[in-house]
Design a protein around this nucleic acid. Sequence first.
DNA 1: CTTATTTTGCAACTATGTTGCTTTTTTAAT
DNA 2: ATTAAAAAAGCAACATAGTTGCAAAATAAG
Lengths: 151, 151
Amino acid sequence: MIMAKQTVVQIDNQATEILTRNNLSITGGRKRILHLFLEQAGALAHGDIEKKVGEKFDRVTIYRTLQTFVDKGIIHTIPTADNSIRYALCKDECSGGHHHDHHVHFVCTVCHITYCLDDVVTPALKFPKGYTSSHVEVVAEGVCRNCKPQH
Amino acid sequence: MIMAKQTVVQIDNQATEILTRNNLSITGGRKRILHLFLEQAGALAHGDIEKKVGEKFDRVTIYRTLQTFVDKGIIHTIPTADNSIRYALCKDECSGGHHHDHHVHFVCTVCHITYCLDDVVTPALKFPKGYTSSHVEVVAEGVCRNCKPQH
DNA sequence: CTTATTTTGCAACTATGTTGCTTTTTTAAT
DNA sequence: ATTAAAAAAGCAACATAGTTGCAAAATAAG
């Protein structure tokens, strides 16, 4: 899927639009953090965000902003086995207010970027008698498109 | 699967056997922690273990013991979205030295116990062009057998 | 039983996450 | 545009989680 890189203005408009649509005040911090998610494909951990925004914002503000975004369904969390919650933007289908994110997540072992594979749907599973599942998370580990050895 | 509850002695023998098989010194701490895993079905987070063993062992010892067990393939980690690494015993098939754990994990939203569903195999997935996956983790959320509303 | 090796405990430290309260910014109404 | 009410950000203090180096204790091997 090749698409023209968005201009800063476009990203900014998109950030504002997301905040407006979710009845959130438009603030520098929220726009800054949304920019980070809009500018790149991967998921971000709290620590990544803290590093990227530099000293500009208080740690507490970042925590609260991420929590707000999760509550509003703007971003979703991705389970990891390394004790760092990762967050990724919900795609348009999700952002109505409630989450869907029935897609698979992919962690590249080379570049350590976490991708949302929106086209890979989590498969249906048959559970043992007595277990009722309401939600299934799938995290795949491997080598991503960009880190694939060239031939 | 109904099986007779193991006696304390049996569990203790089993713990010793696991340590011996993995060339680990037999110490009180390691046996104590192995007991916790052998005595019950669910996965344990570091915090759970710290609470259960009481003041008997240093926090650092617990961290190091868990790390040792993971390295030896005695236990494996389970990804979560709530920033707490959970550990579960590897079943016999896994414990040779390298991990398999191709099974699904199940987190009960009522009792918050994490189960290894050893009989539910992680399904094969078709990834987008360029992505090569080496390992897939599946975590299901729902209501477990014990918490299921009775009829 | 003694020695070499491994493990544990301790102390100090870093990182991560939370809460209450004050100040600042944003919004919305004049 | 000004201003009052509401929301967000910053600050400080705290709580929890995880790491590292080193000394003391326990274990394994001879």
